[in-house]
Simulated assay, not measured.
Amino acid sequence: MYGIDVITLVSYDQVQHTDEGMLSLSYWTIVGAYTVRGEKNDTGTMVDAVLYDIPSRKMLFRAPGTSRIKGSSTLVNLSEQLRTDSLNGFHLAADNLVTNLQLELDRFRKKVKAMPESYAIEHQPGYTGGGSLEARYALTLLVIGGFALWSSRRKEGFRDKF
């Protein structure tokens, strides 16, 4: 329908658990709820990327990225700490995904070279190669990016004066 032959599906899942530790007994005092880290937090994150060849309905390769964060927090800062752990877990899993994706891509390249009859690469009519942009689009993107960079630095310099 869209003229796409290959598609990548990316998904993620995250699970968080919180348990009270023995130190949570100090919550009976007001000071304990603010200072003692009695909540035990676990955050597990998985990000997964799968590359499919649509016409053959064949999975070409898959790369997962995972992370596990164990931490603790005070009763008062529990929700803030869970949000921080959630974000950090996602970043760590994404970094792990990139590493695994590079390894899988290297394996896939070797597999294609070893068995070229299994993977036929055919260019569609009108294909110009490599995903390169036309010069006017590249120039437009360069101008917009340069203006955005100049504008942000100008604002930073303005803030530094005051």
Rank of each mutant, 00 (worst) to 15 (best):
M1W: 06
M1V: 14
M1I: 10
Y2Q: 15
Y2A: 15
Y2K: 15
Y2R: 15
I4V: 09
D5E: 14
D5V: 11
V6E: 13
I7T: 12
I7S: 14
I7A: 13
L9S: 13
S11N: 13
Y12W: 08
Y12N: 12
D13P: 00
Q14L: 08
V15S: 08
D19S: 03
E20L: 10
G21Y: 00
S24Q: 00
S26C: 08
Y27Q: 00
T29C: 03
T29W: 00
I30Y: 08
G32C: 09
A33S: 12
Y34G: 02
V36M: 07
R37N: 10
G38V: 02
G38Y: 02
E39N: 10
E39M: 06
K40A: 06
K40E: 10
K40H: 08
N41T: 09
D42C: 03
T43M: 10
T43A: 14
G44Y: 11
T45A: 06
V47R: 03
V47M: 07
A49C: 08
V50Y: 04
Y52K: 13
Y52V: 15
Y52L: 15
D53E: 13
S56F: 04
R57P: 01
K58W: 01
K58P: 00
M59A: 04
L60C: 04
R62L: 04
R62C: 01
A63N: 05
S67M: 03
I69V: 11
G71M: 09
S72M: 10
S73I: 00
L75V: 03
N77M: 13
N77C: 11
S79G: 08
S79D: 15
S79P: 11
S79T: 12
E80Y: 09
Q81N: 11
L82M: 15
L82N: 14
T84W: 05
T84S: 14
S86P: 05
S86M: 04
L87M: 08
N88Q: 12
F90K: 04
H91M: 05
A93D: 06
D95G: 10
N96G: 04
N96I: 03
L97R: 02
L97T: 02
L97K: 05
T99A: 07
L101R: 03
L101V: 02
Q102D: 08
L105M: 14
R107Q: 05
F108R: 02
K111H: 09
V112F: 01
V112M: 01
K113V: 14
P116H: 03
E117L: 11
Y119H: 08
A120E: 14
A120S: 14
I121G: 10
E122F: 07
E122Y: 06
H123F: 15
Q124C: 02
P125Q: 11
P125M: 05
Y127W: 09
T128F: 00
G129Q: 07
S132N: 08
E134R: 05
E134C: 02
A135M: 08
Y137M: 14
Y137K: 13
A138D: 14
T140F: 11
L141Q: 05
L142K: 14
I144K: 10
G145H: 08
G145M: 06
G146T: 09
G146A: 11
L149G: 07
W150A: 11
S151E: 06
S151G: 00
K155Q: 13
E156T: 13
F158Q: 11
F158K: 09
F158G: 04
D160H: 04
K161I: 12
F162D: 10
